[in-house]
Design a protein around this nucleic acid. Structure first.
Length: 663
DNA sequence: TCAATCCGTATC
DNA sequence: ATACGGATTGAC
């Protein structure tokens, strides 16, 4: 009988001081997304510290949890149960990170438990019991010196930014790196300035290869023992060991991939992110937070500075500038020109338009000549080809702009080759299509073939070594000698001394992607490749096989990601897309999605798009115009999810806020 | 009138 | 999931 059991537990004595532990239980039901109070047994009182792991009996089951805080009393009306077990006294979830996780859960209409699974790595008991190393204060920190003027002098506000960090202030900047910039070094210098002020820093990068570069630059700049690198592929023991080094304040700096945005760094002075436009920053697990958003939230909560750095510029970064949240940290045009390679378009001729698959088969002569000259000069040539497997997209015959729905501006798609194009968002068939850019009324399917580029190039340049870098096998670097390097976006190796030429091929595959970020993403990928070339003055040449009249091609020719981003953001404001507006997508069985929409008290002015079928499920989109309304939207959806989970309603509905794959 | 059972709801 | 309270049922 329970009363007897409860009495037996009651006979245990609660701690004399702060007998209550407020616990975040690992239960991801929306209606249970709040702390629960437990009694701390007196004999365990010393171990029960804020942030430690515990097990508790919750609704009859044993569940994991974290102690959020100790308290003198509870607001709970009934009896409190005792903690079942103190897993470890190690404080792995300090209040600052708990508050961050709460804020992220709120913003993404998710539960704290889900965010904590992303924020705290699984425990590894052996790693925990290993002895602590000397704290950072005892380690030799490289003395902070003003950065070498030759490095930062190109950026008028650069040295002021570093000085502000070194003086303990919290500057925020969108850093647009010059072509060929040694960005890991620049990020490391910003971190060094922060460490000099006695504060910690977090820097994130998209993938393991970028992390290797940043890690090396950190060691070179800060010296050993000041930072740890965190990423998912470390394996559980090593991952937890490094996490603990940060958590135990043995190091003040953490670098890593997206999950490192949650890393336990105390007294945070700087958050930095490299290339925030990369898809890899979008967390694929609920509640699908984006690392940039996590870091910005964190900078806000911690009063820390922020460095949003990239060669390109995302609409989100542009918004930070336009709202004055961050300052622009960029070089003046004449310096940009000086450092950039020379870019030329190789026009898309009529033949190729009729047969997109023939693009790679017939390298435009300008591209061929440019590559030949570079090879003759003994410099490697980078050839960027898109990966296969893009969605069939639809664009305007006249101006090639991606086709959009006349009602809600969603992207049009073809489900089969004979079907009428329809909107991916609201499902409306596009029978009366009119291009939003040029008014054209005809559509064309832009279904793209793949590149068998490497062999073709090998044949075009006999005797020249051809190397490939792609998904399966990524090269970090190549030597500064004549070679053809064929790479997919994101896998471009760095060339010793820079590439003599970069060819950007099969550009239709990027330009006609079905999502609405196509333009931004295209420029980001092109710049990422082009930045690896030598400056024009040292012979660096870029050939982009695309129509020179396209806006995105113009932006590359002029090396002007800032103007492009401003235009992109203006367009999204006009069309009502993130980050100007905020959107939520609700995916699940049709009845469940409908139920959610009935239950949710959507904020004033919320606009419902769809639902449309997505496989066996349906997806509805809810759009609000302002970011303030975005908060209310997330609250409304989380509350509705709470009602559904309390009722044990059938069918799970996935809620995603501003999901990147939609645009 | 009381125990057995069902159902809804909270979960400390 | 499980536990509890309150309502409902059915046997006496």
């Amino acid at each position: 009988m329970t009363t007897r059991g409860a009495q037996r537990r009651q006979q245990r004595e609660a701690a004399a001081t702060l007998p209550v532990a407020r616990v975040a239980v690992d239960v991801s039901l929306a209606h249970l997304d709040r702390p629960f109070d437990y009694l701390v047994p007196t004999d365990r009182s010393d171990e029960v510290v804020a942030g430690c792991r515990v097990r508790v009996r919750f609704a009859g089951r044993l569940v994991d949890g974290y102690v959020l805080e100790r308290a003198a009393s509870s607001d709970h009306q009934g009896d409190l149960a005792f903690l079942d077990k103190v897993v470890s006294a190690e404080p792995v979830l300090r209040p600052e990170v708990a508050a961050l996780a709460r804020a992220v859960a709120d913003r993404y209409a998710g539960t704290l438990a889900d965010v904590l699974r992303l924020a705290v790595p699984p425990r590894h008991a052996r790693a925990e019991s290993q002895p602590q190393r000397a704290p950072a204060a005892a380690s030799p920190v490289a003395p902070f010196a003003a950065p070498d003027p030759s490095d930062w002098a190109a950026y008028p506000t650069g040295s002021a930014f570093l000085t502000a960090l070194a003086e303990g202030r919290a500057p925020k900047a969108v850093f647009t790196a010059l072509s060929g910039e040694d960005w890991p070094r620049r990020v490391a210098e910003a971190v060094l300035a922060t460490v000099h002020s006695g504060r910690g820093a977090i820097a994130v990068v998209p993938d393991a290869r970028d992390l290797d570069r940043l890690d090396a630059a950190m060691t070179a700049t800060l010296g050993p023992g000041i930072h740890v690198a965190l990423h998912a592929s470390l394996g559980p023991a090593e991952r937890y060991r490094r996490f603990l080094r940060a958590s135990r304040r043995e190091v003040p700096v953490v670098v890593g991939t997206r999950a490192a945005a949650f890393a336990p760094v105390e007294n945070l002075g700087l958050v930095a992110i490299w290339d925030d436009g990369d898809d890899l920053y979008a967390e694929p697990r609920a509640p699908y937070p984006h690392a940039l958003q996590v870091l910005l939230t964190r900078a806000q909560l911690a009063g820390a500075g922020a460095l949003v750095a990239a060669t390109a510029r995302s609409a989100e970064a542009q918004l930070l500038i336009e709202t004055r949240w961050a300052q622009e940290l960029a070089a003046p045009r004449e310096v940009v020109r000086l450092r950039a390679p020379a870019v030329a378009p190789a026009g898309d001729d009529a033949d190729r338009e009729r047969d997109p698959a023939a693009v790679t088969a017939r390298l435009p002569s300008l591209a061929w000549r440019t590559a030949r000259d570079s090879l003759a000069a003994g410099a490697p040539v980078l050839v960027q080809v898109p990966r296969r497997g893009y969605l069939p997209a639809v664009s305007c015959v006249e101006c090639h702009a991606p086709a959009r729905c006349g009602r809600c501006s969603g992207p049009l798609e073809l489900r089969s080759s004979h079907a009428v194009a329809a909107c991916r968002w609201c499902g409306r068939p596009a029978a009366d299509f009119a291009c939003h850019r040029c008014g054209g009324r005809r559509l064309r399917a832009a279904i793209v073939g793949a590149g068998r580029t490497a062999e073709e190039l090998g044949r075009a340049f006999p005797g020249v070594p051809v190397r490939t870098s792609g998904r399966e096998s990524v090269l970090a670097t190549v030597a500064g000698e004549a070679a053809l390097v064929v790479a997919t976006p994101g896998a471009e190796p760095i060339a010793d001394g820079g590439y003599g030429a970069v060819l950007l091929l099969d550009t239709w595959a990027l330009l006609t992607r079905a999502d609405l970020r196509a333009g931004e993403e295209t420029l980001r990928r092109w710049l990422a490749a082009a930045t690896l070339a030598r400056p024009a003055g040292q012979g660096g040449r870029i050939v982009v096989v695309a129509d020179g009249g396209l806006v995105v091609v113009q932006a590359l020719l002029r090396w002007d990601p800032a103007t492009f981003a401003a235009r992109e953001l203006a367009e999204r404001r006009e069309l009502g897309f993130p980050p100007a507006a905020r959107m939520a997508s609700l995916t699940g069985p049709a009845e469940a999605v409908a139920d959610m929409l009935t239950l949710a008290a959507l904020p004033e002015g919320a606009e419902l798009l769809g639902p449309v079928p997505v496989g066996d499920d349906e997806r509805a989109l809810v759009r609000v115009a302002s970011r303030t309304a975005g908060g209310a939207l997330a609250r409304a959806l989380h509350a509705a999810a709470g009602v559904r989970s309390a009722r044990k309603a059938d069918g799970a509905v996935r809620i995603q806020i501003d999901p990147r794959e939609l645009w």
